[in-house]
Each structure stands twice: as structure tokens, then as C-alpha cells.
Design a protein around this nucleic acid. Sequence first.
DNA 1: ACCTGAACACCGTTCAAGT
DNA 2: ACCTGAACACCGTTCAAGT
Lengths: 238, 238
Amino acid sequence: MPTYARLVTGASVDVLEPGSAPWWHAHSERLRRRRPRAGGLTVERIVDEAIDLVDAEGLEALTVRALTARLGTSSATLYRHVASVEELLVLVIDRVLGDIELPDPDGSGRERTMQLAIEFRRVLLEHPGVVPALRASPLLGPNALRSAENGLTNLVDAGYPPAVAIQGYLAIVDYILGSAFFDTAGVVDRRPDRVSGGGADLDPSFFAAQRAAIDGVTGEDVFRFAVTALLDGLAAAS
Amino acid sequence: MPTYARLVTGASVDVLEPGSAPWWHAHSERLRRRRPRAGGLTVERIVDEAIDLVDAEGLEALTVRALTARLGTSSATLYRHVASVEELLVLVIDRVLGDIELPDPDGSGRERTMQLAIEFRRVLLEHPGVVPALRASPLLGPNALRSAENGLTNLVDAGYPPAVAIQGYLAIVDYILGSAFFDTAGVVDRRPDRVSGGGADLDPSFFAAQRAAIDGVTGEDVFRFAVTALLDGLAAAS
DNA sequence: ACCTGAACACCGTTCAAGT
DNA sequence: ACCTGAACACCGTTCAAGT
């Protein structure tokens, strides 16, 4: 049984849910023990190539065969570095979240909250194809935790009592993810037969259409408006 | 070429994007022309069975073969009633949205807004497995439009200027969908090997875990809090 | 006129057999 | 010690052949 997880981390490990806290722990252990050969395949190269593929052709184009063809190996080889597609998606997500630049620490808590929200959204919209995978696992990777910690700190620094800060944080994150999720609908499917179809089959999403119909109201406008409203509501609840 | 769409609505129709406005138009035409035999398969039966299957075993269990086995026919038969799985999902979504009960018209605009939001969320959480399919197409089905119209009317009746009402509506809908989306993560995957695993592989999502960690703060609490905050922010922007 | 067995071109994943 | 061709058990979808 030469599955990767069994070989490297013991038979019990492939039971761990990819993206769970114990899985992340086992994963970092795994990476530490790696002694990659020059020119050989690495998890990093696999994840980078996967993101490029999804950005170019959408999530449904991310198949083991397509990815390994790009990497110049056979599909079976992938499984020496990654236990499953599910695991690959978990790594892709945290990699993307690593692009989030934390806000200038000199700003006020409220300014930093807005900055982080906009930056979070920016990163997600930069990789629309990846967005649906956000839900496939809890966001417990190192990059996810780094942003979460910063987000909570910003709200506490803004002066909200901890209980309010937590609720506000959860509400804002749900909103960021929800808005990114639905603002990227329709952008993601890049199957050639759709793109070349023209007209009706390129129908944007309902919400995008509504926004476009209202002069000057962009997804970004609604986003700033909503986050501001949430922050004001937070103040009222304190 | 006996594909359903070609047979009934003409060769150009199977180019229509399922869930788009022209597709919905063609679909209602199609249903009007149907003269179903007694005991025969109907789109309604297919959709009902699909929802039952997804509720019981999750979205990834919804395969043509599994569904037609439940319906007592062969997989090929499904394609006489539905053009593709994508189309089936569009019908499933609008069917679920049909469960939304519109708020008591005697309430104030603000009360109705909150009622509709909570009811929308309730329906989505009742069918956690279908939630990810919400993004697969624009929400332009008859039931989706019915709720959207009500939602906008409620905000206008609450006294917000139309421009504010629209932005508020979009923000609230994004939030409802986002919160349902992430609150149902982890609940959806009911593959037997996961459910029986116990412990680590049942890890709830990050946000659910955080909520559970804070005594008495439920997803519902955060939801009411966030919608209230958005409404208050709306008032401030008017 | 309706239904379907068998096939097609895909998936993710495994493993015996190569080097 | 690492890689991979070929296979396995699935997908969604099609269509010739049945009734």
C-alpha cells in the first residue's frame, strides 16, 4: 500500500480530514521531513500549477490528468506528494489566502478592519475559480489563521467589547465570503463552449446584472457600504 | 439526435444556459406542452426525488445513476425529461426556494425584512446539501423572483430611498447566502466513511467551532445581529 | 411514441511492474 | 527509492435497437 499518507505518516493518518487541525499538524510534519531532489516534483510546484490551471480554465478543469500533464508527469505520480484532490484543494486555498496583505498596523482598529476586508475580497476576486473550494474545509491553515487573528485584533483595538468583536468578526467574514462567492459566479466557468457561445449563455448572475443595471453601483460599492453598515451596527450594539 | 431540448424546443435551445432568463422562459413553455401519462416520470417527481436524495446523502451522492435507481428507471430515461444534471440542479434550487414563506404583509417594512431574512435562512439550513448549488446559476426562477420582489418591496416600504434599498437588498442577500453557505459547511458531506469515522474527521468548520466556543453564541445569534446591523447602517446612509 | 442496454469518453485512485 | 502503464470502479451523456 504505497499511498503517500501511509508511507510517510503512518497508517492512521489517511483517516484525518484534510483541512482539520490535526491534518494541518501532520502536514507540516510531513513537509519538514521532505528532502526534495533537484528538479523533482514538490508540493509547492503542484499547488502553484494547480492555481495557474484554475485561474486559466476554472475549477472544473482541475483534474489529476490535466494537472500532471502540465507538470510533465503521470497522474499516478501526483499521489506520491498529495493524498487526494481534496487535500490538494485545501492546500490551494491556504496558498491563495497567503496573498492577503495585512493592513498597516499604524491605522485605527476600524481602518484596519476595512482595509483587511477589502484586501481579503481583492485576493478572492483575483482567483474567482478557487472561491467555491473555500467551503470544502475549515479554514485552519497557517495563512487563514494569520488573517483571522489580525481581523479579531483589529476589532478589539477598535474598542468593541470582546463578545461584540467576535460576533462582528464572524458577521464580516461571512459577508466577505458570501459576497465574493456570488460576485464570482458566472466568471468561473470558462469552458470553451460557454465562452465562445456569446449572448444569452454568458448571462451574468442575477446580482451582478442588478448591479450593472443601476448606474455606477458596483460590487465594490455594495461591499464598502455593507461593511460600513456592519461596523456602525457593531458600534450601536456596544 | 433525441436529446430532450432539441426534440421539444428546437435545435437552438440546448445552447441556452440553464437558469438564465431565456432558459426559464423556454422551460415554462416546455412544461405547458407536457401531457404526462399516468404513472409516468415527470420533472416534478425527478426534482422531488433529487431533493430527498441530497437531503439524505449530500450533493455528491446526486448522480444520474443513483437518482434513476431511486426512480425505478434507467439512467438514459432521465434525459427525456431533463437536459443535463446542471439543469436538474437549477430546478432543485428554485424548488427549494419555493418553501420560503413570505412575511405577514401587515408588519412594517423593517419587520418584514427581518422575517424574510430569517425565513430564507431557515429554508436553506433545512436543505444544507443543496446550498452549494445556489451558485451554479443566476437565481431567476419563479420562486427566486417572488422572494426577490418581496425583499425589495419590504425595504422600500421601510422608507429607504430606492438607491439605498437596492444596495441594502443586495448586501443582505449576499450575507444571507454567505452565512448559510458557511454555516452548512461540514454538515453536507454525509459519505458513510466520514460519518462513522468519529472524532477528528468530524471537525466542524472554523466558524462553527468558534461559535461553539463562545457560550450561547449561535449562528442564529450572529445572523440576527448582522442583519440588524445592516438595517441600522442602511438608516444611517439614508 | 416511449424506453433502455450498451457504449463512449471521461473521472479519481491504485498497484504491479518497471528503472 | 522513485516513477508509471494499465487497470478498476466510477462519472455524465448518447444512441442504436428494442417494445
